[in-house]
Amino acid sequence: MVEHFVWVTTRRIRPGALEAFERAWRPDQYPQALRRAYAYWSEDGQEITGVSFWDTKEACDSWRASAVETQRREAMAPYVVEEQEGFYRGRELGVGPA
């Protein structure tokens, strides 16, 4: 079983702010321990869920405490109404015929 370390963040943003929020959301640099990242948004463009896969929880925690991440969060702040996040461990589920 391959285990994944996943950080999930869901943000509700101000109406009409999706384009500006997306510009602020992208970091200037990406951490080496980040393996994959996905973004999903609601039809109305007011809720964004980011899912990122990391080598370890410690690598994710280190990134979250970094100056680059602090600057990124400050840039997003004017557009964010509400934010929820969590860190998870899990694995891919096999679906369909094997």
Rank of each mutant, 00 (worst) to 15 (best):
R73M: 15
F53E: 14
R12L: 07
A37Q: 07
D55G: 05
V81A: 10
V80I: 12
G96Y: 06
E69A: 14
M1S: 15
R11D: 04
W54K: 01
S62K: 02
H4V: 04
P78T: 05
S62T: 13
A77N: 10
P78D: 00
D28L: 12
S52W: 03
E22G: 02
R35M: 06
P27T: 04
A37G: 06
F53S: 04
H4A: 13
G86H: 09
A67N: 11
R14P: 00
R89H: 04
R26K: 14
G90D: 06
E19G: 05
G45E: 01
A75W: 07
F53T: 08
G50A: 07
R73C: 13
G50Q: 11
A39V: 10
W7V: 03
A39D: 00
S42W: 06
T10Q: 13
E92Q: 13
A75P: 07
Q84V: 07
V68Q: 15
P15C: 00
E19L: 10
G16L: 02
E83W: 00
E3A: 07
R64Q: 08
E69I: 02
E3C: 05
E85S: 13
E82D: 12
W63N: 01
R91W: 06
A33I: 00
G16Q: 08
E82F: 00
L93N: 02
G94I: 11
Y40D: 04
V2E: 14
R23T: 12
F5G: 06
F5H: 15
W7P: 03
L18R: 06
Q29S: 15
R11S: 10
V2G: 07
L93C: 13
D61E: 14
V81K: 00
R11L: 11
Y88N: 06
A24C: 09
E92D: 12
G16F: 03
R12V: 14
W7M: 07
R91Q: 06
F21G: 01
Y30S: 13
T56L: 01
A24I: 00
W54D: 03
V51G: 07
V6I: 15
R35T: 02
E47K: 14
A33L: 00
E85Q: 12
R73Q: 15
A98T: 05
A20L: 04
R36F: 08
